[in-house]
Amino acid sequence: MTSLLSVQDLTVSYGRVEAVRGISLEVPEGGLVTLVGANGAGKSSVINAITGIVRPRAGRIAFRGADVTRTPAHTMVGRGVVQVPEGRQVLATLTIEENLQLGAWRSSGRRITEVYERFPVLAERRGLPAGSLSGGEQQMLAIGRALVAEPTLMLLDEPSMGLAPRVVDEVFAVIAQVRASGTTVLLVEQNARRALEAADYGYVLATGEIAHEGPATELLADDRVVQAYLGAE
């Protein structure tokens, strides 16, 4: 498989603090790759550098073979690289419908109907402020809003964070559907076991560096990874 996204020697720093130190990763077309690690390992910084929300200090990011290292966020969305941000970031004072319309800022918006069919709760409440939704529903809205942008690559940042176990199941079911529909997924998760079970390939990030990488099944079977990052079951 060819790489849809290729990251080489990426370094991200905030002032003097280096959050990401020279990491490289590949996301093949059609794949589901996960980036796991503890809180503060630099996972979000990697996603934000890829989508252009933060500027990397060094390294190269290529999407479909083209250099997009310094491409601004609004251009990346137009190219099909769409983020479901950490903490969902739904626009609470805007209606659900307006949130989805904004998701279609750089697309036709044809998919809004599909999103309503997939998430009937959003359709029922389309005229209400997004802030009135529960945490799980807001996560569905955040994913729906990204789908409306017609992504080639969807990057999800901690989609299970703060959600009840039953809702986490639902989120992972949706991610599996997104992938099955042909969208490539890069999933960042603190819930490493769940993420690796869903993914084909995984990277384990620790203090800004890649500690382990490999096919997800191998990482799940690797004692060092299990003990250090996944905990005993």
């Binding site: 966020a73 609004h74 970031q89 739904v90 609470a92 004072t93 805007l94 307006e98 319309q101 904004l102």
Partner: peptide
Amino acid sequence: GRAMRAVAENPTAARVLGINV
């Protein structure tokens, strides 16, 4: 107007959506 209100509420979320803030 929607984009203006999005920027008003949360500029980072607006950028994530592809809005040129």
